[in-house]
Simulated scan of single mutants.
Amino acid sequence: MRADIRHVTEYAYDEPAWDSFNEVRLHPEASARQQLKSFHLLIEPEASSVTSHRDYFGSIVHHVHVHEPHRVLRIEAQALVITKPLPTPPSMPLSALAEVRGEASEFLIASPRVPPGNWPEVFGVARPSPDDDLPTFLRDLTHQFFTQFTYKPGATSVRTTIQEFARAQQGVCQDFTHAMLGVCRTLGIPARYVSGYLYSGGEMVGADATHAWVEALIPGAGWTGFDPTNDVLAGEKHIKIGHGRDYPDVSPVRGTFYGGGQGSLDVEVRVYGEQAQ
Rank of each mutant, 00 (worst) to 15 (best):
V64A: 04
V66E: 01
E44Q: 12
H67I: 05
G117F: 02
R113Q: 15
S59G: 15
F57M: 05
V100Q: 10
G124N: 12
V50H: 07
L108A: 10
S49A: 15
H62Y: 14
P90M: 02
A47T: 07
F123R: 04
D55P: 09
S129A: 13
V125G: 02
E99K: 12
K84P: 00
V50G: 04
P112W: 04
A98D: 15
L80A: 10
S49Y: 02
A96F: 07
S105C: 08
P85G: 05
P69N: 05
V100Y: 13
R74K: 13
T51C: 05
D131H: 09
R113T: 06
D55G: 02
L94R: 12
I75L: 13
P116I: 06
P120V: 06
H62P: 08
I60K: 11
T51S: 15
A77P: 13
P93N: 08
I109M: 12
A110R: 11
K84G: 00
V64W: 02
G124C: 12
P116D: 09
S105L: 11
P69T: 09
L134A: 09
V122L: 12
I43G: 09
L80F: 00
E99I: 06
L80P: 00
V61S: 06
A98F: 10
V50K: 10
D132P: 10
D133P: 13
A98W: 12
L97S: 03
E76Q: 14
P116C: 04
L134P: 14
S129E: 15
P115D: 07
P128L: 01
E44D: 14
E68W: 01
G117D: 10
P87I: 01
A126S: 15
E121F: 10
V81Q: 07
D55L: 00
E76W: 00
V50W: 07
V100I: 06
F57V: 08
H53D: 12
K84D: 07
P69R: 01
N118K: 11
D132L: 01
V122P: 13
H53Y: 12
V64H: 03
G58Y: 01
Q78A: 04
I75M: 10
T51W: 03
V50D: 02
V66D: 03
T83C: 09
R101P: 11
S52A: 13
G124D: 13
V81E: 05
